[in-house]
Design a protein around this nucleic acid. Structure first.
Lengths: 204, 204
DNA sequence: CATCTTATGACACTCTGTGTCATTATGTAA
DNA sequence: TTACATAATGACACAGAGTGTCATAAGATG
């Protein structure tokens, strides 16, 4: 039994026999070998030795096999947002908070080569690229909350958080397209195009 | 025969009998009445008095019925980018070019109330919101080309165009959620969060 | 061993999106 | 008027995503 399976273990009842991480990795291998659209959910289930319905119990969609494991990144970013405030820094320098959060998110990724493979697969398929808006929604919410707490108007905070997500995603894509080991310089360069509006205001 | 059908008319052969605009409008009505996911392509085809296959000949996907008619907006934005350069303005003020392009795009929309309805439908369905990345791709390319021509590095231009699209989309969504007649103030406010990096450089 | 909990997968279903192909309608030329 | 070319049309069939139901299997607990 893997650690992932152990996590799902309850006090009683049948324990999980499927390791989601292993299945996702296997799916990524199949996608790399035969192509994303040429690999059906049934193919993946068969290769994993499980049923198609069981596969859907762990992954709500085919895209979830690629977009996945972002919870630790969001969690690390959220912690960075929180500690940034706790350090009593100025609200005027919210951009520094965004930079720290982006870097903190990147820092918790265990295997960057796997992430690079996932991002390249995402870049190659519009169906997966589109998914970014949904998949990054939790990060957007955390950034929005941070910006509102920093004193920005709701409207300005929404604009800035939208730009924050779009630029950092673009940074990750640029990093994935190359071979540089460290994504952080890309993230910092991306955030250079952002600024906090002087009036901190929205429309009007 | 409508003007739209006339546009598709060739020198010879059977002329089109289906008006895509009418079909899309009818589809929007059905979505509003029964909900997006409760309305199948077959329902729409039946209501329009055509076959499902014919419906797919005019609209590549169900989402295309909602995301559609953006070509004039892209065209107007592109023209604004071009005339901005022709006026011999400084490359340093590329943000003004982005503002003009965004406003020019909004100016060519014939019926804003229809656009508001479409955007609200998009806001309510993650499936449609996700589509923004693909649907806005042409605008992203035009903005990217403009920024590169303005002297930005390819990397910085990609970051800025990503932020441009994300913020203007967010502006449209905020406008659609309210009742203000003019979307331009939202667009201008959104672009206030952008800046041109001083070194105009990318990573490194 | 009995029982409870949960994973599992078989079955059936709707819907999206695609491909093929015969048919029909209409404009143009002989 | 008669071919003829062109393109719209829709009938049929199909793969695959995603969902719902339900009987069964398997392991943990008492």
């Amino acid at each position: 039994m893997t650690s992932e399976a152990a996590k799902r273990q309850r006090a009683s009842g049948r324990p999980a026999t499927i390791d989601p991480d292993a299945v996702a990795g296997l799916a990524l291998d199949l996608f790399a070998e035969h192509g994303y659209e040429n690999t059906s959910m049934e193919d993946i289930a068969r290769a994993a030795g499980i049923g198609r319905k069981s596969l859907y119990r762990y992954f709500a969609s085919k895209a979830d096999l690629v977009w996945g494991g972002t919870e630790p990144v969001v969690e690390a970013s959220t912690l960075a947002f929180g500690s940034f405030h706790q350090q009593g820094k100025s609200d005027a320098d919210v951009l520094a908070g965004l930079r720290e959060a982006a870097a903190a998110g990147a820092a918790v990724i265990p295997d960057l080569s796997v992430t690079r493979g996932r991002l390249r697969l995402i870049a190659e398929h519009a169906e997966l690229t589109s998914r970014s808006y949904e998949s990054l929604a939790p990060q957007r919410e955390k950034a929005l909350a941070f910006l509102v707490e920093s004193g920005l108007s709701d409207s300005a905070a929404r604009f800035l958080s939208a730009a924050y997500l779009a630029t950092t995603f673009e940074a990750w894509m640029q990093w994935a397209a190359g071979s540089d080991p460290d994504p952080v310089p890309y993230l910092l360069a991306a955030l250079e195009v952002l600024r906090v509006p002087l009036e901190k205001a929205g429309v009007g």
